[in-house]
């Protein structure tokens, strides 16, 4: 069951200066856009600047800081999230353009404290060092398996190439995806 929260981005004094909340299309480019977004199963009613990226929305407005900013230009994959189940870079996704859709972030994977098989596999294979790219790697890896692009090591390497890891944990990431693949299939059958 989805719950509803309201996250407001407009700082208090700016909102006070405006008599009525501006709707999208009002002709004022700086007016916030109102929309709803589902994040990790929870509906959020939002009023944010049209320029706000999905990444900044998650981090600065919804306190979901697991998703990381590494380049803000779609060049590193650290901000990867699932949008309606497909992996995307949240830095190049305008939050307002994601309205009405379902976002899954790293915080939405573990259920009742039990790690997702991919999270456990990343631990087992030490598939990170500093850990900064890790949420993006894990989100990407889950999609990689779901897409059917994790059947061979060569495929995993190619389809995980959108996620840079400066610590260069790449071989361990491949091993983790390899381990999680059957576990994910089992889980999806259950």
């Amino acid at each position: 069951m989805a719950s509803v929260s309201t996250a407001t981005v407009v700082p208090a004094f700016a909102r006070a200066s405006r008599a009525t909340p501006a709707a999208a299309n009002s002709g004022d480019a700086r007016a916030p856009s109102d929309f709803t977004l589902t994040v990790n199963g929870r509906d959020h009613r939002l009023a944010v600047d049209s320029r706000t990226s999905l990444l900044d929305l998650l981090r600065e407005h919804l306190a979901l800081t697991g998703t990381k900013k590494g380049c803000d230009h779609g060049q590193c994959g650290a901000c990867t999230v699932l949008l309606d189940g497909r992996r995307v870079v949240s830095c190049l996704t305008l939050a307002v353009a994601a309205q009405g859709r379902a976002v899954t972030t790293i915080e939405g994977l573990a259920k009742n404290g039990e790690l997702h098989p991919m999270q456990q596999a990343f631990i087992d294979h030490d598939a990170f060092q500093c850990g900064y790219c890790t949420p993006g790697q894990i989100m990407s890896a889950i999609a990689c398996v779901n897409e059917g692009h994790a059947e061979t090591d060569a495929d995993i390497r190619e389809y995980m190439s959108g996620n840079l890891c400066r610590c260069a944990a790449y071989p361990n990431i491949v091993a983790a995806v390899r381990q999680a693949r059957p576990a994910m299939k089992t889980a999806s059958r259950d």
Binding site: L64, T65, G66, T67, T105, I106, E107, L109, A110, L115, Q119, Q120, F122, I123, D124, H125, D126, A127, F128, G131, T134, P135, I138, P171, N172, A175
Partner: peptide, 27 residues
């Protein structure tokens, strides 16, 4: 598990990182 080599002489156990869970959950 290639990531966790069996210790030889003068090597410590391949304990998983104590911060691993925090790192894979975004916490």
């Amino acid at each position: 598990n290639a990531a966790a080599p069996t210790p030889k002489a003068n090597m410590g156990a391949p304990a998983p990182r104590v911060d691993a869970r925090l790192k894979v959950t975004g916490q």
